[in-house]
Amino acid sequence: MKVLGVDDEKDIQILFEQRFRKEIRENQINFAFAFSGEEALSYLNQHEHEAVLILSDINMPGMSGLELLEHIKQKYHKPPPVVMMITAYGDQENYDTAIRLGADDFLTKPVDFTLLKEKLKTTL
């Protein structure tokens, strides 16, 4: 499956690739990365037919993770991708907004990769 990681921190790519090295090597998960909301949207436009799970940070310059979520949930109906929001601010407001906008899950930084792996596996 295809997982799109969205974060303005570019080192997230290296981190994810290493954290999920086994899953990547075994071709269980395919990772793509976007470093802003805008970039994520353009990636989704180009790879419309791929089944995608989106892991997105909320706090990003430019388009925020929540805006991205709103766009995805409003415009990409078939099939609606699974969107998991990750934020450093594990506050109720962010959580509520994310859920209202249709987020499938909500994770708090620092990311517990074991938990994330479990969630990804169940989603798959």
């Binding site: 921190e9 981190l15 290493q18 954290r19 450093a88 601010y89 930084k109 620092p110 990311v111 990769f113």
Partner: peptide, 25 residues
């Protein structure tokens, strides 16, 4: 303050994650 906390948390997360990953590696 909040911004700073976030700014610090991000690198700290990386430090933690990369060191954990290194252990695995």
């Amino acid at each position: 303050t909040a911004g700073i906390a976030h700014e610090i948390q991000n690198p700290l997360n990386f430090v933690n994650n990369f060191s954990e990953v290194n252990l695995e590696l």
